[in-house]
Design a protein around this nucleic acid. Sequence first.
DNA 1: TTGTATGCGTTATCAT
DNA 2: ATGATAACGCATACAA
Lengths: 329, 329
Amino acid sequence: MITMTEIARLTGVSQPTVSRVLNGNQAVNPEVRERVMACAKAHGYQPNVMAQSLAGSRTHLIGVILTDISNAFFADLVKYLEQEARKSGFSLILFNTNYELLHEQEYLEVVQRYRVDGLIVVPVQENASKWKTHIHHLNIPTVVITRRAEGLDSVYVDHQEAGAQVGRHLHEEGCESYVFFGNTVDQKYQGFVEILEEQDSAFREKLTIIAIRDSNAVERELQKHFEQHPGRTGIFAYNDRRALQILGILNKMGIEVPGRAGLVGFDNTYMCEYLYPPLSSVSQPNEAMAVKAMELLLHKIQQPEDIHVENWPMRAELIPRESSLFRKK
Amino acid sequence: MITMTEIARLTGVSQPTVSRVLNGNQAVNPEVRERVMACAKAHGYQPNVMAQSLAGSRTHLIGVILTDISNAFFADLVKYLEQEARKSGFSLILFNTNYELLHEQEYLEVVQRYRVDGLIVVPVQENASKWKTHIHHLNIPTVVITRRAEGLDSVYVDHQEAGAQVGRHLHEEGCESYVFFGNTVDQKYQGFVEILEEQDSAFREKLTIIAIRDSNAVERELQKHFEQHPGRTGIFAYNDRRALQILGILNKMGIEVPGRAGLVGFDNTYMCEYLYPPLSSVSQPNEAMAVKAMELLLHKIQQPEDIHVENWPMRAELIPRESSLFRKK
DNA sequence: TTGTATGCGTTATCAT
DNA sequence: ATGATAACGCATACAA
């Protein structure tokens, strides 16, 4: 790979002159400019980012540390992050923690070694004090994405509001009892419950919470619920994967969807529209999140003195499909 | 970020001595060693990869250029690639071409600028001569993955053999007619057809090929097929996404699966086991491919003189599930 | 407009 | 065992 010094030798000028030409910076003699450019092109010159970075400029590297790239949701996010980074001439150096704190810690060191200009992170535990201390010590512009970490710029979806949307929707579609699949510490659950309690003070008695995964056990729980609640049941699953499993179980049980039970998933995975019936789901604004996160990050990179911390809760959107729409007969 | 020179100043030794200590290389005075180590640890020293690389060692960067990270299959692959890279102390710098040749070309330049030690690529068009010339000019150890590029190390799945597996399976499960969803240039199709022609010389007349995507149009085509072929029908879809759509359509048509039609997908996506009925699918050995690709690449990086080109066709495996199993009543 | 000199943080080759 | 010194490829301040 040819270097500036080499081009200088070949064209009979000094290396800084080559630098000027190649960076289009200063006023250079047009003839020299042409000669140098021609030589560079002929030899396929590519600047050595390592040297550039050493000499004081930026690395144009953005470290992306996330928990699970094989998760379609994160993979989608990465796609948009990469797209945005590219627009500004940055490249992504990617790390997958696999939800392991040790890996996360190690990667925090690796990105330091590469002197990344900025960091976009999906933390394993966004509010663990150890992690926060570590991050703050790095002194690298950082944006947390899909999670809210206090004291750090965060771009995420307001899950509580999303849960409320689902609750409102199922209620409007005539559901008289409810099943929530997932963990009750989930903000989705909080929003779901709150809005429905507003509608119906006896709501709690009409709610079944299922956290187990085993299909047979789930079927038993559902059976029990349907026996106790004759009216239409609204089911909210914390993600589409889970919703898919439930759809299969309902199918097997002979429960009519959406007639007897309305189902809503989360993440709006591509498969939703292909399922039978098509699955209602909550769509997270992946591209918007990526764009905003990168925007915040680049701003911090360019203006390091701006120490202002921003929170960007974004709104998810329920995409109603057949699985939860009450069709009057 | 503290440097070796700074540590040298603080501990009253020379910078090269610090280097020796930190690299555990030479015999150094134990007292000095301890002093330096303590100082490094206290200040959270991290080597500057840019400087290391400039000074002659490797960048420990592996460029990963692929077509679509948001595709679950590639995302999964990346997960394993990252895992393997990490084991050997390499990091991934990731690029998503989005199937655009211009982006691919541009990224080929970017990885040069970063002086990556090696390249793992899913090309947009693996046998375009322009691309191949470009790749060869780079003179960077490269492994092509999921595709077979002649003249370049390639790790991929033998789709023809995979198609044959599906054909054999459906035949064994008592199918008397067949539907293939996809493109006939697909190697999967070739293998599928070949094996079935061996079994039944009149096979071609019993085969319907559907390439369209529109659900209504697909339904009409299927309807026609079922009217003409009363026996059990074996359906092979080129990927799970498509299989899912078909499952929905069959459901809607009232076609019993697997009784009236056996269905097999491709990629063995996580959703297969949650579908109703669970979907038979061909599993690509993602982890094995990633491991092999990285192994080949690291070998080439460490032994650049070994110019030997290797092809690694790997075997996919049909995972039979309820959707294609003939249950005798 | 152009060349000289210097420094970035390492590694590596010398002496000592 | 350790310290000078040079070199990697580039940017930049300064001199001419």
